[in-house]
Design a protein around this nucleic acid. Structure first.
Lengths: 112, 112
DNA sequence: CGTCTTTGAGTTATATATAGATCATAAGAT
DNA sequence: ATCTTATGATCTATATATAACTCAAAGACG
């Protein structure tokens, strides 16, 4: 096979990525940091930061979140302090859900 | 050179990634979708979805956001409708900021 | 209890992201 | 106007993410 991907994204995803890129760029400028400074602090190359600020979907999640964090963009618009609280809540909720998702007959969905 | 990366992440970033992973997993189960279903809809492999739900930072941003969108996790806790509004706001703000960040002498910061 | 399905984990081949470099241009500062 | 630096763009080598597959174990449910 050739091309593995050439991935497609929903409109919503595209917008979310674009917004994140804009927030990163705006945040960096508001902090008056050069792209090299941010890249250094994030431990990434300047080129990668440029791709992030252009809204390239094919960047590593971790690197992107690290950069966002550095320039003051909060993902879930949740305070740093309450992140761990949310984590605990999500963990709890997860234990209450079934380990496996079991598919019923699904006559309606699949037969038509 | 060998190892390019072995990246490090701030505590905050680690938590954000972990939370995102948990929200994805929880969201999927709440929708009663199997990992295969979500992977198919997102156009990714089941293995990649598993990594996402384990909180692997080295997944593609775009793929992760697509999955989050599918299972109903909203990133900036912003409604789908207001995403474009936020984009426009960020774009506007960006035009008001200087194109280049210019570093002053910065005697205070650097000399100590 | 028995069966079917979901999930977790590991492997391999291939496509691709990344770092690091260079160059040209734009944009601040003097 | 000139100088200096930040930015944008492109290229290459290398590390690595991904898809696809397989297998084993666990979970749901009759």
């Amino acid at each position: 096979m050739s091309k593995v991907s050439a991935r497609t994204y929903s409109r919503h995803s595209k917008e979310a990525i674009r917004l994140l890129a804009l927030l990163i760029r705006t945040g960096r400028k508001e902090l008056e940091m050069t792209s090299q400074e941010v890249a250094d602090r994030a431990g990434i190359s300047r080129g990668l930061l440029q791709r992030m600020e252009k809204g390239d979907p094919r960047c590593e999640l971790g690197a992107t979140i690290e950069v966002a964090s550095i320039v003051g963009v909060k993902l879930f618009d949740v305070e740093s302090t309450s992140l761990s609280k949310n984590i605990r809540q999500a963990e709890e909720k997860l234990t209450l859900l079934p380990k496996s998702v079991r598919k019923k007959a699904k006559a309606i969905d699949e037969d038509f």
